[in-house]
Amino acid sequence: MSAPLLIVKIAGDRIAVPAERVHSVIELSRIVPVPRAPRFIAGLTTLRSRTLTVIDTACALGLPESTEIAEFALVVESDGCGYALMVEAVENVESGEPAPCRPDVKLADGWKRAAQGLVETEAGSLLVIDLDMVIAGPLQDQAA
């Protein structure tokens, strides 16, 4: 089954996410920090009357900080709450069927947990990630 995938840039990598989960893409303006929240929660932002929890996607996946500034965010809903997942760029929509990761493709630690599979595009193989894993945050935080 082929599903539309949104190609975005996270921590410098081009990554595919299931497009049907993404309500909209916003440009991040002011973010209100949330003191004492886990580090991957960058803060809160508002979209009309909705408040979204902004997630530092790279941090949530345990990836090294990127040199690029994430100024866009994917608006995603989970368990009745709205989230804005920070991305550095939004490129295009492709359609493709994620295939299981091939053994010849090595993934960095951070990506492994959220990886759903690989998809072949004109620009080469892209990793498809599970957005719920991003929202759940890094493992060590869950235990705390």
Partner: peptide, 27 residues
């Protein structure tokens, strides 16, 4: 006051989030 992400509630410091007149979020 609206509910906010479980991970934020989980800190034990907040019950929800409100939107102020200027559109900003306030915990």
């Amino acid at each position: 006051i609206k509910p906010v992400a479980p991970r934020i509630i989980g800190t034990g410091f907040y019950v929800g989030v409100a939107q102020l007149d200027d559109g900003q979020a306030a915990l």
